[in-house]
Amino acid sequence: MSDTANKASPHGAHDEHGDPYAHIHVSSWQTLVAVFVALVLLTSLTVYVATYDIGRFELAVAMGIATIKCALVMGFFMHLKYDRALNRMVFLGSILFFTLFLGITVIDLDSSKPDIESYRRENPVKTAPATEESKPSGEATKPGDPKKSGEPGQHQKQK
């Protein structure tokens, strides 16, 4: 797909005419529009798929479609397809570290699940935490709920 709309070569050395800006790559408008149409179609697809219950594949499918959209934007709108290999490496490097960060953290907290779940089970919250305090009305000082406050521990129920 060679979209160079003017005489400039994709990149590399100065051409024979001595044009110092010969390295600039120009995309054709047809390519841009085609990419946009593909992106719109993929968006529709992901919304459409989400209306069906496909269980555990839901996240994988949604992320798969998003990744394809991402690749299209990066490749054509951001010219990464025609850019220097170094810039591609820079970008891929960031994705690698992103994955490492997210991956290891999720692995760890996932295996802490039992400790967190048992704590939540044994220490349930009775009301939404903010309701006592951030109720806009001044009900907090109304002496209407004495028994409620007598219960041991609003946040931390005694075992």
């Binding site: 290891i104 692995i107 760890d108 996932d110």
Partner: peptide
């Protein structure tokens, strides 16, 4: 980075 969390409730795997 996780070696700062050896005693902090980090799972044995990590």
């Amino acid at each position: 980075w996780g070696h700062h969390l050896f005693t902090s409730g980090q799972s044995p795997v990590a």
